[in-house]
Write a protein that binds this DNA or RNA. Structure first.
Lengths: 205, 205
DNA sequence: GTCTATACTGAGATAGAC
DNA sequence: GTCTATCTCAGTATAGAC
């Protein structure tokens, strides 16, 4: 991999994380990277593929860690009941672990989860993880109807996204790594209680 | 108010709701409105102020309804304990009530809540409501530390936003008014359980 | 193979004729 | 009030230097 390609990725990650994908211009990135505009399109092809390149560097590490923790918790549970808290821990802990060394990457992940018009490049990394954790929660919450669980997964994703990157909007507090760790420690029991709540009375109307 | 100004607002609301604020171009709106590009800037000043004009038409109605329901529930509770479910009902019911007649407006509200780079014009309508409901929840959950409640409000906002507009991304299901009503009926018990969860053990690190 | 210079299309915004 | 023309800046594409 060329030096120029490497020089692009870090500034891209930083600016995408700070301003969001849509609000970031490639010209802002090249200004920080010290490369020519066309170099981005030569090495990556487009703005969206540049985002894909940024994600690809670390998303596999994060998702593998999630899957590893989840498998460990499942093995520990054995034939017994898998606790909701353990499943949430497997999802959230890798975020906490990475926020110290790669804060920009974590913020970018949060922003992307919240953006409505997110590119295809992002979804392909999230969907398998979502499916895997939905399956685990199905085991942890056997009495919850599958459709209800699917919705609750959305509630969880929304809350996680807002937790990672929404603070600048709704509260004056900034997104420091330490602050984010604290928020996620608060998020886990909130989500566990929500997921474990009895399903609403079914109505057909 | 001129005819031209009126002709712009409905298409703007529709296209903003369908594509999101950032992804929408003024040229898409004028194509549906049948007006000149400069007319938008003459009547509204900018793209952001056009969004403000769209919100202004209905956001007061929604927020007044929220405040009215909340006041009614508080009066009903009297000196007794205000239930978390009642506070959530006051926040969510106006969404359900409006989604039948004004589905585009509701979708737009959801999208804006989720967008990280949201304009100032939006925040000024949300912040007072957020403060008012935070105060009500302080009464409903007197044992919860204020900082913990502030974070949980963020979790709630994230889940609500994702519920209104996130389905197209995370699940194949579309955002029909009926489907949204069902999701919000599922959302309320989830959020009530989360808000009512015991606060996490305090740690200083 | 890499990278630069340049141009193309479409975005929001604005000045000025009518 | 309205519309034409134009400005700046965005993402993108390509020809050609090295």
């Amino acid at each position: 991999m060329t030096d120029t390609k490497q020089k692009i990725l870090d500034p891209a990650e930083r600016v995408f994380a700070q301003q969001g994908y849509a609000a970031t211009s490639l010209r802002q990135i090249i200004a920080q990277a010290g490369v020519n505009l066309a170099a981005i399109h030569y090495h990556f092809g487009s703005k969206e593929e540049l985002l894909d390149g940024v994600l690809l560097r670390k998303v596999t590490q994060m998702n593998d860690r999630r899957l590893g923790l989840l498998a460990a918790h499942e093995a520990e549970a054995g034939a017994g009941r898998l606790e909701v808290e353990k499943v949430l821990d497997a999802f959230l802990t890798p975020i906490v672990e990475m926020v110290g060394e790669h804060p920009d990457f974590v913020r970018l992940m949060g922003r992307l989860m919240a953006e409505s018009e997110l590119p295809e490049a992002v979804l392909k990394y999230f969907q398998p993880i979502l499916d895997r954790f939905t399956a685990a929660l199905t085991r942890a919450l056997p009495d919850l109807p599958p459709a209800e669980l699917a919705w609750r997964m959305q509630f969880v994703m929304g809350a996680v996204a807002q937790t990672i990157c929404g603070s600048a909007v709704w509260t004056p507090e900034h997104t420091s790594p330490a602050g984010l760790r604290g928020r996620i420690r608060s998020l886990a029991p909130f989500l566990a209680a929500g997921l474990s709540a009895p399903p609403p009375a079914t109505r057909e109307d």
